[in-house]
Computed example of a mutant assay.
Amino acid sequence: MFIVSLSYTAPLSAVDALLDAHVAWLQRGYADGAFLASGRKVPRNGGVILARGERAALEQRLAEDPFAQAGLAQYDITEFIPTLTAADLDALREPLPG
């Protein structure tokens, strides 16, 4: 599983101009089963996406984000293994390898 942290590299006016296209891109990620949760950072200087799948596929998907294509954000990807979760998130648990 991955935590993707987006940091805006442009003014919010430029981000807002592509927000509808970014949301449509996010919705495709949810429809494909790659994205589990997403939202704005507070303060609004970027966003966070919780994703699953293969890292290479995620990197390709992130490159297709309208924010990335316009140079409006940079992306930091952190991979983790969710070995413990709240009961509502049991389906996301993964065993440790080996």
Rank of each mutant, 00 (worst) to 15 (best):
V23I: 11
A24D: 01
V48A: 07
L84K: 09
G47A: 02
P95L: 13
D88H: 12
R55W: 02
E79V: 08
D16E: 10
A51Q: 07
I3H: 02
D32K: 15
S38L: 14
G33E: 04
P66D: 01
A34F: 10
F2V: 09
G47I: 04
D20E: 13
I49V: 13
V48E: 03
A34K: 11
D65S: 00
A51V: 04
L6K: 06
P95Y: 04
S13P: 11
V48R: 08
S5A: 14
T83M: 13
R40N: 12
H22G: 00
L12Y: 01
G71L: 05
A68E: 00
G71P: 05
L58E: 07
A56H: 11
E94D: 05
R44H: 14
L26W: 09
Y8I: 00
R28M: 12
S7H: 13
A57I: 05
S7L: 08
D90T: 15
L26N: 02
G98V: 02
L18V: 01
I77V: 15
F2E: 07
L50P: 07
A68H: 05
G46T: 01
Q27H: 12
A86S: 06
E59N: 10
G47H: 00
Q74H: 15
V23C: 02
D32T: 14
A70Y: 08
R93Q: 05
R93A: 05
L96F: 14
Q74G: 10
I3W: 06
L50H: 09
S13W: 09
G98T: 05
Q27M: 08
L62K: 07
A91N: 11
F67A: 03
R55A: 10
I81P: 13
R52S: 09
A63Q: 02
A17I: 08
